[in-house]
């Protein structure tokens, strides 16, 4: 255990501890149905009924299903698919995403959402300033830059996905969506963010920050008021959330701690959700770890051990059935 007051362990020792902790976490993957590219997928009992091939699979010869990616085999009734872990964000309608504007094009903004293509935010899908509902005119089109410019960070929701080529259309037709400022963006792998009931979370005191967990792996950490109901004035609609001026030091430090907690979870490959973030922050407080040391191997090892213990406890409580 890390002694807060003792001499700091050497880097090698810390790295060794981290590796050990990671190994413990990995051992829980031994029983999962992982499959490699090119492997034949066991059709199992469904073979007689016929199978539908989903993502990540292809037919190879007679009644033989082959994996085209490495990942986890998922079976839902007759549908067999292989879910790859790494990879760009695949949108689903209704996902909350955080994106960055790359281009202001005709009647739309092109946004980078860490997907296979840039997503489009149509002019018709945003709320005009003043909350007015009317047809978009040429003047609106010319004033697009007043609303969002290149490199602006925006929270939005996936409206629809084009069947033909998978192009994603976003919308910000709600008070809680819009431009983000006065905070920090952390990028993690999309598979670490699971779809939750609420993606706009206000972390309670003493953390007191608001986070937006974009399903595309972009996590925004900002001030709490963006999350509060009606954090944006309904009438204003398009005002950016968050302080536009100087952010005070206290808030900045809290945001950095939360951001590093997210990074720590991502570095260990653990899912990023609010309880986990809060726990990591509390652990760092308990062990009196400086914000800047939160990404060092000693602290990461501690987080990993904690997680391993938690899984152990869970495993003992209810035997896993596969």
């Amino acid at each position: 255990m890390l002694q807060p007051e003792g001499p700091a362990p050497s880097l090698d020792e810390a790295a060794a501890k981290l590796a050990e902790a990671q190994a413990i976490l990995q051992s829980s993957t031994a029983s999962l149905p992982l499959v490699c590219l090119g492997d034949a997928i066991d059709l199992g009992a469904d073979a007689e009924g016929g199978v539908m091939k989903g993502h990540g699979t292809m037919m190879a010869g007679e009644a033989q299903l082959q994996a085209t990616v490495c990942g986890l085999v998922e079976r839902v009734n007759k549908l067999v698919s292989v879910r790859a872990l790494k990879g760009r964000y695949t949108a689903q309608v209704g996902d909350v995403v955080v994106g960055r504007v790359t281009e202001v094009a005709q009647k739309r903004w092109k946004m980078d959402v860490n997907g296979k293509q840039d997503a489009a935010l149509l002019l018709a899908s945003v709320n005009l300033p003043g909350g007015v509902q009317r047809r978009r005119t040429n003047v609106d089109e010319l004033n697009m830059r007043e609303l969002y410019q290149e490199n602006d960070l925006i929270s939005a929701e996936v409206q629809q996905i084009n069947q033909g080529d998978g192009a994603v259309a976003l919308h910000t037709r709600s008070a809680k969506y819009g431009k983000l400022q006065g905070g920090q963006l952390v990028t993690v792998a999309p598979y670490l963010i699971k779809r939750l009931k609420q993606h706009f979370v206000a972390l309670a005191a003493p953390l007191d920050v608001g986070i937006i967990l974009g399903c595309n792996g972009y996590v925004w950490i900002g001030s709490k008021d963006l999350v509060d109901a009606g954090g944006r004035d309904e009438d204003e609609g398009m005002e950016a959330a968050g302080p536009s001026g100087q952010v005070d030091l206290q808030l900045r430090e809290r945001m950095c701690r939360v951001a590093n907690a997210v990074r720590a979870l991502a570095a260990l490959g653990l899912p990023v959700h609010p309880p986990a973030i809060v726990e990591v922050c509390n652990l760092s407080g308990l062990l009196r770890v400086e914000i800047k040391d939160m990404l060092g191997p000693e602290f990461l090892a501690q987080v990993a051990y904690r997680e391993a213990d938690r899984r152990q406890a869970e495993g003992d409580a209810q035997p896993m059935d596969h």
């Binding site: 990995q26 999962l32 992982l34 490699c36 490495c70 653990l270 899912p271």
Partner: peptide, 17 residues
């Protein structure tokens, strides 16, 4: 290559299924 793939896969932590 397959062996190396398998090892690399297990290194990626999988969220609780």
């Amino acid at each position: 290559a397959r062996l190396s793939l398998d090892k690399a896969q297990r290194r990626l932590e999988l969220p609780g299924t």
